[in-house]
Amino acid sequence: MKIKELFSNLHVHAHEDNVREHEMHPQHYWNPYLVGVGLGLVLLASFVVMGRGLGASGALSTITATAVNTIAPEHTASNPFYEGYLGDGETSPLKDWLIFQVLGLVVGGFISGALAGRNKISVEKGPHISVKGRYIYAFIGGSLMGFAAKMALGCTSGQGLTGGSMLSVGGWAFMLMVFVGGYATAYFVRRQWL
């Protein structure tokens, strides 16, 4: 019941324009430079304590590899990509640093959202697209992102933030191209957001 109470609004929002204006209002969020310093200090703490940075897509890969391994173990055994995420078979692949970090990320996001009254069951989209349409875009975008993150050995967290602040050559090449890809595509999907 407590969890339900924390969601300030349980009914699905149609996201009318007034809801959009309300949510987009920047005063509801912290100043971006302040958030940047906070995020930077979390990243720095990870470097100093663990000797590694932040990540996200790696956890999704471990879950995917574990799922494929559960359904078809012979299949994963012949593929070095899956094997890399499954370990020696003695301990569960889910007992992993990134898995626990992402569990924390979900908890941290929930706490922040609850304190600000931003937790609600809803669909994020512009006013000119249906919920179904938005789901299709979300699935396609997610698929491209999952594929690309594996190609780049990391996502916005692992390559962008971590690689970027360690001045990694690959991390900076990656990050510049993320912005190029985003801006090049934005015009074609504007009906989803604007």
Partner: peptide
């Protein structure tokens, strides 16, 4: 190339993994 595709996926999907 991964960054480029990820950027395209970002604006289509609206999120990144984190």
């Amino acid at each position: 190339l991964g960054g480029l595709i990820l950027g395209i996926g970002f604006v289509i999907g609206g999120y990144c993994p984190g």
